[in-house]
């Protein structure tokens, strides 16, 4: 009889153990009740920005109701926007003045002082006049070309080819006149390294041609013939520089020649002095929560920064405080 009760006790205890284990396991794996990540990699500290540095505020968001936005440029009171396979011209009152369907999806736009517009579409280029008439159009000879940025400098068109890691130079008839790979005698400055498919160039108010060398987190100034003149290089995980594969992704200039840079990975837009110091932050990473792509940037006549948010399909306007 004693044995029997012993047995019953053992069985009951074990059964209780089984039930307890199941209940504990079940409740501890409910969503929101699960343990946190033991291997947490805290990149939050790199995402947070000293509020004192944020000297810009977001004033407006303009939603783009047509196709996927792809590129933005600003010239003389007008916004040039590539959306879907269209080129659109948008006036200062946010009315759409003109629109034109391009033969392929535009990838980047540049507008020059004469009012002519250069649109790159992957491996093709087109020159349009202010009425959006196509003046010249080119199929570039090699298919292995991916133009990620164009700029107009001294009446020549400079196109950054991210696949070939070189800058192609065309005249206004779209005949290729030159190309260069950014190699120079300076030992620590390598030719263009484009590890992530983002390669950008722009002309500053002093009419200098600046090109990114994103693999080494550098902004480089070249002569029109492709000779390196000077550069700034800032590699850092923090706000003071650029990090990762391919940054900055896009950049442009404020009227006084300071850089506006846009970065991927930890998405942020910031202002850098000509000597490469981070001066202020236009948009901290929180502004792009959930986004994945570095916004394209342009600067308008009032010195506001227009950021093209690809994920949310809108133009976001940041004003200095």
């Amino acid at each position: 009889m004693k044995r029997k009760w012993q047995l019953i006790t053992i069985v009951l205890v074990l059964t209780a153990a089984v039930v307890a284990v199941i209940v504990v396991e079940f409740t501890s794996t409910l969503p929101g009740r699960r343990p946190s990540n033991p291997f947490a990699y805290d990149i939050e500290e790199f995402r947070s920005v000293d509020p004192g540095l944020i000297k810009w505020k977001e004033a407006r968001q303009v939603s783009i109701d047509t196709g996927d936005p792809r590129a933005i440029a600003y010239y003389n009171g007008k916004i040039f926007l590539a959306a879907g396979n269209e080129l659109q011209v948008i006036g200062s009152d946010w009315s759409r003045l003109q629109r034109k369907t391009m033969p392929a999806e535009p990838s980047c736009i540049a507008v020059a002082d004469q009012g002519w517009i250069v649109v790159a579409m992957g491996n093709r280029l087109a020159v349009l006049d202010s009425e959006l008439e196509i003046l010249a159009e080119s199929d570039l000879p090699e298919i292995e070309i991916n133009i990620t940025s164009v700029a107009i400098h001294n009446n020549n068109i400079y196109a950054a080819d991210a696949t070939g890691r070189m800058v192609l130079v065309f005249n206004s008839e779209l005949q290729q006149v030159d190309e260069f790979r950014g190699e120079s005698g300076v030992s620590e400055v390598h030719g263009f390294i484009v590890p992530g498919g983002h390669f950008s160039l722009a002309v500053n108010p002093e009419n200098e041609l600046w090109i990114t060398n994103p693999g080494i987190h550098s902004l480089q100034n070249y002569t029109p013939s492709g000779r390196l003149r000077r550069y700034i290089q800032r590699t850092s995980f923090g706000i003071e520089g650029f990090s990762g594969c391919c940054n900055p992704v896009h950049f442009t200039f404020l009227d006084d020649g300071r850089f506006v840079t846009s970065e991927k990975g930890i998405i942020r837009i910031k202002v850098m002095s000509e000597s490469g110091e981070t001066e202020s932050v236009i948009a901290p990473p929180e502004a792009f929560a959930g986004g994945t792509r570095a916004p394209a940037v342009a600067v308008d006549d009032q010195g506001n920064v227009l950021a093209l948010d690809f994920d949310r399909k809108m133009i976001r306007i940041f004003e200095p405080i």
Binding site: Y41, I43, G196, S243, G244, C245, G265, I266
Partner: peptide, 11 residues
């Protein structure tokens, strides 16, 4: 950890 770092900073 590496995948997170690679996605945050790299490709």
């Amino acid at each position: 950890k590496c995948a997170e770092g690679c996605s945050a900073f790299g490709n």
